[in-house]
Design a protein around this nucleic acid. Structure first.
Length: 469
RNA sequence: GUCCCCAUCGUCUAGAGGCCUAGGACACCAGCCUUUCACGUUGGUAACACGGGUUCGAAUCCCGUUGGGGACGCCA
């Protein structure tokens, strides 16, 4: 049977980095085994689910290159089916009607807590009750948990990541599968949907590990084959606590805004909780080749932004110049930097050098801004301070000679070296004032590359302007 | 509280009883390269949580302790 996996987020907020990794693992596993990867939106909580969140999840997945192979399934549209299964369970005698009110349940819990006993629901009175004696409250449907003496007394799951996990049946109680208002509960709906969607491997966060035993109740009672489960460890913040906003960027789209490349984020996420020897840089196609569940660790891992940043730099350097130029230009426009066709061409010309020294697209954009603008670039205060009278004199002198220089990068470099040689100064004494005049900053790509990319006219303009000040 | 899961450098990890004087990557420190900044490169600091077993031999297997995390809803 072909592998089918699914990612099943609830649209109650943005897609965070942990969810993104779960999606990635589901995607990778399906691809690795030539199967399908699906998406199910768990929007049965009408109060908290929003259309915006659904859209954000879809956008996030698309950005990461993790769009599903089939149109997403919306859980809320399947409620009739969930109810149908619940009624079937009732008809089979695997479930029963429970007439407790929320208040009564709360009281039972309070009582258990006061007595320092773990709360375990006991619905035996409803199972033996004559239907005529039913209270006049709408009942919920509860599924019968396996008895303590059933199946060896334990419910066992062979988890593909966690190994064999076993819980005593005495720990399980009769859970509600259909609420008194006729809506399904999550634990029930998930099972029905996964079954109907033909999911063979449920790969999800290990916060669902103990839920699995409850879900098994539904699979077993319906006589359905349980899928294979794989519970992957959660991602924590740098302090080891559950990942939240205070840890910095956690939303998938936040990373896009900050200038991260989706392939870098995916690579980083993949290596979080998964390893394959010494390999660190693993592009998508290689990832599909290598990924498998047995390489997934069992311990929670922490988000390390420094490493992500490094990886992003690696991917940035390897990215196509055209693509980076597009991204950078878009960012410059967004930041209100004015530039024309010539500016865009200059950015493109300098891109091979620019990308060599950037970690994010934002870095790249700010370092490219000087090439995009027309005329003298905004001057960094630190750079301006270095524009001493001597430096200006040097620039003026340089301008004179540069007029006759050949305008090819190789020649420019040689020319500059000759100039320094002839004048008896170090190359740095020539390069640094030039750099400031051309880029407005003390840091830029190699000066010969900058001269060349700017073009003779634009370069001369800037040198003269800086020399004249 | 009850149940479940986990535990190698600061972080991500390699390690499936001898290959481990524990390897790699990020970060950090020092040097080299150099036209600034990066990149690159060389070297360095740095870990098997603790205690018991099992074994000729344990980071690797077992038990316990400690420490983390998760789940205990008519939420998902």
């Amino acid at each position: 049977m072909s592998v089918r996996t699914r990612f099943a987020p609830s649209p109650t907020g943005y897609l965070h980095i942990g969810g993104a990794r779960t999606a990635l693992f589901n995607y990778l596993f399906a691809r690795r085994h030539g199967g399908q990867y699906l998406l199910r939106i768990e929007d049965t909580d009408r109060q908290r689910s929003t259309q915006e969140a659904v859209q954000q999840i879809l956008d996030s997945l698309e950005w990461l290159g993790l769009s599903p192979d089939e149109p997403p399934v919306f859980q809320s549209q399947r409620e009739a089916r969930h109810a149908e299964v619940a009624r079937e369970l009732l008809a089979r005698g695997c479930a029963y009607l429970a007439y407790d009110t929320p208040e009564e349940l709360a009281a039972m819990r309070a009582e258990a807590e006061a007595a320092k006993r773990p709360f375990k629901y006991d619905g035996s009175r409803w199972m033996t009750m004559d239907p005529k004696d039913a209270p006049s409250v709408a009942p919920a449907i509860r599924i019968k948990a396996p008895r303590a003496d059933q199946a060896g007394g334990d419910t066992v799951v062979q988890d593909l990541v966690q190994g064999e996990v076993r819980v005593a049946n005495t720990e399980l109680d009769d859970m509600i599968i259909l609420r008194s208002d006729g809506s399904p509960t999550y634990l029930h709906a998930v099972v029905v949907d996964d079954h109907d969607m033909g999911i063979t491997h449920v790969i999800r966060g290990d916060d669902h590990l103990t839920n699995t035993f409850r879900q098994c109740m539904v699979y077993d009672a319906m006589g359905w084959h349980r899928p294979r489960f794989a519970h992957i460890p959660l991602i924590h913040g740098a302090d080891g606590a559950k990942l939240s906003k205070r840890h910095g960027a956690v939303g998938a789209l936040e990373f896009r805004e900050q200038g991260f490349l989706p392939e870098a984020v995916c690579n980083y996420l993949m290596r979080l909780g998964w390893g394959h020897g010494d390999e660190e840089v693993i592009p998508r196609d290689r990832a599909i080749q290598l990924f498998d569940l047995d390489g997934v660790g069992r311990a929670a891992s922490r988000m390390d932004y420094a490493k992500l940043l490094h990886l992003n730099g690696v991917y940035l350097r390897g990215a196509e110049d055209e693509r980076l130029t597009r991204e950078v230009l878009a960012r410059l426009a967004k930041h209100g930097v004015a530039f024309g066709t010539l500016g865009a061409e200059r950015v493109r010309a300098l891109m091979p050098e620019l990308k060599e020294r950037a970690k994010t697209l934002e870095d790249l954009a700010s370092s490219a801004a000087f090439a995009a603008v027309e005329g003298p670039p905004p001057m960094d205060p630190k750079a301006a301070a270095l524009l001493t009278p001597e430096a200006k004199a040097r620039l003026a002198d340089l301008a004179q000679f540069l007029n006759d220089a050949p305008w090819e990068r190789k020649d420019l470099e040689a020319w500059l070296r000759d100039y320094a040689d002839v004048k008896g100064v170090k190359l740095g004494q020539v390069a640094q004032p030039l750099r400031i005049a051309l880029s407005g900053s003390t840091q830029s790509p190699p000066i010969d590359a900058v001269l060349w990319a700017l073009g003779r006219t634009e370069a001369m303009d800037r040198i003269l302007a800086a020399a004249g000040e």
